[in-house]
């Protein structure tokens, strides 16, 4: 049985969207020299608050906004810990992740009641772009998605420009490479890192709310299921540059979308193996970049001025 290539390609585009949203934010965080291991947690809290926002207001845009703002505030918490206080970034990130699992579950049970899976919202409708969506093959692959998919695809070049062509992007990269040098030039190292974590948190929150508001239309506990961790892999694979991250997100999304089709098409393979597919791809991506990776020189190192 032949695989439905067009459907799978369209699914790749859709599946890659939340990964890419989170990854784009994380690129800035990491470029500024911070590793945000709390990203999974930020996505999770974003997923719940976005859902709640959309559920109570009846407006999905408001849901996204809430998800974004809540994600941003957790980003601020991460920034306070890891930038201001100089706490070990790995510990701070893990703490935020664990805290977020508890927080989202607690809030969901308090606000939505005992059986959260039964509460659904009217989700996001796909927008067919006039004319373009009628194109054969390309139309269904690229131009019959929900609005966030388009926005994210447009964001990739915009984030690239922001990172590599603006004074802000230069400062971000400088702070990640040599914060001391940046400091001598009057750049506020902590402020830049703080801003990047706000951006990273906001994007992670938005990515989370994408899952509940745009994709599943329902809140499920731990709905992110490791998506945040995979976004980190996408960033690593993408060498912290938006275009390569797009490629990485697509590769992993291939695993996600294939697993639906393969369960039918390749029924002789035990389905457990097929479900593993995206995670196996994740590992392959990680192995593929060993040694060739270009990490910012001050990655994971809190910056403190030397007192002389």
């Amino acid at each position: 049985m032949a695989l439905p290539v067009v459907e799978i390609s369209a699914a790749i585009i859709e599946m890659s969207t939340p990964l890419l949203i989170a990854a784009l934010g994380e690129i800035f965080v990491e470029r500024s020299g911070v590793l945000n291991l709390g990203i999974e947690g930020m996505m999770l809290v974003g997923a719940f608050s976005g859902f709640a926002g959309a559920y109570f207001s009846g407006n999905f845009l408001f849901g996204f906004l809430i998800g974004l703002v809540v994600g941003m505030s957790i980003g601020a918490l991460m920034a306070y810990l890891s930038v201001k206080l100089g706490v070990d970034q790995i510990l701070a990130g893990l703490a935020i992740w664990i805290f977020s699992i508890g927080l989202s579950t607690f809030l969901a049970r308090t606000i939505l009641g005992i059986a959260p899976g039964t509460v659904t919202i009217k989700g996001l409708e796909p927008i067919n772009i006039p004319l373009l969506s009628q194109l054969p093959i390309l139309g269904p692959i690229l131009f019959q998605h929900n609005i966030l998919v388009y926005l994210v695809l447009i964001s990739v070049p915009l984030f690239h420009i922001l990172l590599f062509r603006t004074t802000f992007g230069l400062k971000v990269r400088a702070v990640g490479e040599n914060p001391k040098a940046a400091d001598t030039l009057g750049i506020h190292v902590h402020r830049i890192r703080f801003l990047c974590l706000l951006l990273g948190g906001a994007m992670a929150g938005l990515a989370g709310s994408y899952l509940t508001v745009a994709r599943y239309h329902v809140w499920i506990e731990e709905v992110t299921a490791g998506m945040g961790w995979i976004a980190l892999v996408v960033v690593f694979f993408g060498k912290r540059s938006p275009y390569r991250a797009l490629l990485g997100a697509w590769i992993i999304a291939t695993g996600f979308s294939l697993r639906y089709y393969l369960q039918i098409a390749a029924f002789w393979i035990p389905y457990q193996f097929i479900l593993m597919l995206p995670y196996i791809l994740t590992i392959i991506l990680l192995v593929g970049i060993v040694g060739k990776e270009e990490t910012p020189a001050a990655f994971c190192i809190p910056y403190k001025r030397e007192e002389t």
């Binding site: 802000f168 230069l170 400062k171 040599n178 030039l185 020189a297």
Partner: peptide
Amino acid sequence: MVHQHFMLIPTFTVVENIILGLESSKEPFL
């Protein structure tokens, strides 16, 4: 000030190192 241990960013170009932190004539673009 020219520091003994140069305050430069090895992965940046010379221009990027020099204009780092300064306002550009095409703000916000470099």
